[in-house]
Design a protein around this nucleic acid. Sequence first.
DNA 1: AGGGTGACCTGTCGGC
DNA 2: TGCCGACAGGTCACCC
Length: 271
Amino acid sequence: MPELPEVEVTRLSFANRIAGARIEAVRLGKPLRWPLGVLPAALQGAVVQQVRRRGKYLLLDLDRGLLLIHLGMSGSLAYAGALPPPGPHDHFELATSRGLLRLHDPRRFGAVVWAASEADPVARKLLGHLGVEPLGDGFDPLAFWQALRARRSAIKQVLLAGDIVVGVGNIYASEALFAAGIQPTLSASSLSQARAERLHGAIRSVLARALEQGGSTLRDFSSAEGKTGHFQLEAMVYDRAGQPCRACGATIQTLRQGQRSTYFCPDCQTF
DNA sequence: AGGGTGACCTGTCGGC
DNA sequence: TGCCGACAGGTCACCC
């Protein structure tokens, strides 16, 4: 479910409410990804100071260390004063002085990892290679083009790799490439400066619009306060194979890149 | 180092 | 109805 917009929507939906909460108990379900050490008993009694986001990771800053939460493919958080009894896919829960924070993740590709700090090797392994934040000041058009020039893979796969720019997943990669008029199979290194700058703008505008719409809810995504997203209703290409392009009427096509589906318009994406 | 592949998991859907 | 393969919002370890 979660690309940058969904993760950010999730963050915004509980960050203010959980700030200052003291962790009173931890409940674990089945193991998630990267069981990097057992969550330390020190978690108990720790106070959540703020919630940040880096790429698709949520970072809960505690008064001792930080908790990295990744939603994987199927994860979502819920945060409320009370929640229904945990189900078979609820694999992590914090009981705090201000309510319950629960991770629901059927496929268990998500992760909850504690690190002493961001300099901790555990945190660096997960965050250290990440590219720039697409909605931040560090996402520069010229630097983006120069980074792309060094990569011979297909532009779609370079976007997904996340080491140049973070947060763009399978939905928004297809959408941004459509908005920029670029064929997903084009080698990243062959983008002109003008096209790279257009893609830079497209990534920003697509992610910002998705954020405004509360993210995309394809199956079961919802924010920590239970709200679903609506961006999927205005997707131009994602999950629209065989349907007419909303811009030109041509039939939306699909192909596989790195075992992921890519959607594109053969008439609008010609560069 | 960049690039390609398989692996991790569970649920759902379409076809036979 | 039942079974079986393909596919689903991500990312890492592992090869060359």
